[in-house]
């Protein structure tokens, strides 16, 4: 059983005394899943805020791990197990590592860097605040009376996700593999040295030298064999 299902069972046991049907749910009687979602959501949001405001670059990447892991827990609470583990594997496992390597390769300063934020910080804060206010208002107003039914079989179990992915979404899936291949080739092309000629001649010369040395060694060895 999933984490969300167990939490849901727990909540169902605690709330059966007060609520019996789905219609009587409300803001003032949050279920256990909602409380867990709220707490993990607060942690996630706090980590995201620290990620975009801290002045230590490596700490930003590490707080991003907390934010993305919190989102994985939210997926688990929403009974989307497969997405949750994919999130942990790809984001926490590889994207953050890539970002840390990028910070390392661009010689990011360790410790506080005073110029992490640019001059348009207050404009950015205004835009983000306005967008947040508008989005939250619209979303809350639109979905005030909508509840997700988390009981029953999990909506995002590996079986359900795999069945829908390979029954209905095969063509986009294959196109995605082509896109990943293109991205791989593009990353290789972008990260090669600009002067490819100078870089190309040197290793081939070395390789020629190596093959010549190997040939000479083989000749001497065959000579020794013949002499014996």
């Amino acid at each position: 059983m999933t984490l969300a299902a167990t939490v849901g069972n727990l909540a169902a046991h605690t709330t059966t005394t007060t609520t019996t049907a789905a219609e009587s749910q409300g803001f003032l009687s949050p279920t256990g899943v909602e409380i867990a979602f709220l707490l993990v959501g607060l942690v996630t949001f706090g980590a995201a805020v620290v990620t975009v405001t801290t002045r230590q670059l490596v700490h930003a990447a590490l707080w991003l791990v907390v934010a993305l892991g919190g989102l994985a827990v939210e997926y688990l609470l929403l009974t989307a197990e497969f997405i949750a583990w994919v999130q942990v594997l790809i984001y926490v496992g590889s994207v953050v590592v890539l970002l840390l390597f990028g910070l390392m390769l661009t010689k990011a300063p360790i410790g506080r860097s005073p110029d992490a934020d640019s001059g348009n910080r207050w404009a950015a804060l205004t835009v983000a605040g306005a967008a947040a206010a508008a989005l939250v208002w619209v979303v809350v107003d639109a979905f005030r009376t909508t509840w997700i039914d988390l009981d029953g079989p999990a909506a995002g179990s590996t079986e359900a996700t795999g069945a829908s992915l390979f029954q209905n979404w095969v063509l986009p899936f294959e196109a995605l593999s082509v896109l990943l291949l293109a991205a791989l080739v593009g990353a290789i092309v972008l990260s090669r040295k600009a002067k490819a000629d100078a870089a190309r001649t040197a290793p081939t010369a070395g390789a020629e030298r190596d093959t010549r040395a190997a040939l000479a060694e083989r000749d001497t060895r065959s000579d020794a064999e013949g002499a014996r």
Partner: peptide, 15 residues
């Protein structure tokens, strides 16, 4: 679960 919880969290993270 109320649908507003994930929607609001998503909006806040986006901003």
């Amino acid at each position: 679960m109320h649908l507003a919880y994930p929607a609001v969290l998503s909006a806040l993270l986006f901003c």
